[in-house]
Amino acid sequence: MVRYLIGSKPGGGYDRYGRLVAKHLERELEGSRFIPENRGSANGILALREVHDAALDQDILLIFNTGLLLSELGGQDGMDMSLADFNWIGKASSEPRILLVRKGTGISSFEELRQRGEGLIFVTSGFGGASNVQTTMINTTFGLGLKVVPGFGGNEAEAALLKDEVDGLLMSESNVPQLLEADAAVPLLAFGRSELPGLQDLPQGADVAQTEDERLTAQLITAMTTLGRITVAPPQMDPARVDVFRDAYARALASPELRAEAAELGLPLDVLPGDETQEIARNVLSGNPRMRDLVTAVFEN
């Protein structure tokens, strides 16, 4: 039996990807039985610890919230483990992030936001969440002068924008089309390549970065969008067993059955093998010390 932990509550994107992957891993590993379990408490840190402390002979995997990478970079309480030590099995998708403003602001480009952004209200997830850290970093390093207000979940932030209560936000690409359909928002900047209509030609964060801090911020956010829906195994798992899981993961994600089911469920795929995913993550976690300082500064403010 393989316990497949999902580091989020039922119903969200991680849950949907996790259950899909677990189901098809079971098919690829003949005779195995995968049991998905939601472990959303404390943003998935408890689940991560459970996998970290698993017995040597225990088959346990975890799909975790990539916001934990930022928690580690920022030296947050409770993150006394390094994600780089885990065995990364693979990643299933990417989700580019889009910076947008309310149409009523009259701003139509990132350059205009640089010039006229002072005092505009941008809402984010709760303090320390991925969108909060990323928005604050953009605001600070690009010198926008925004008022960043935390505490807004994704849907709540969209509603606030539709009601003209806030001026902008950084959000996943999949939620942008309905705001564009409502003629309520103007997308300004993308982190990661989007294929969605109206978002393909947006300038990338790296394109508008002028200083080293701006480049590092764009680099970090883009790397975070690449590292989506990752599955990891315990650090101490036998390397041969890790290879078994990595191979099964690659086969499952490439299978027509999983791809067809993902398409029906509206779950886009952007697969990367475990070793390559681990390499990107290690670069993020152990790379430029200035990047770590920028994230830490967000948590300390």
């Binding site: 408490s41 840190i45 408890l46 610890r49 409770g78 709760g126 303090f127 505490g151």
Partner: peptide
Amino acid sequence: GTEPTYGVQRLTFGSLFLIE
């Protein structure tokens, strides 16, 4: 638990299970 806006932990006594 964790204050939802600014993420400050209150009355959790360092216990992760009370974070929510």
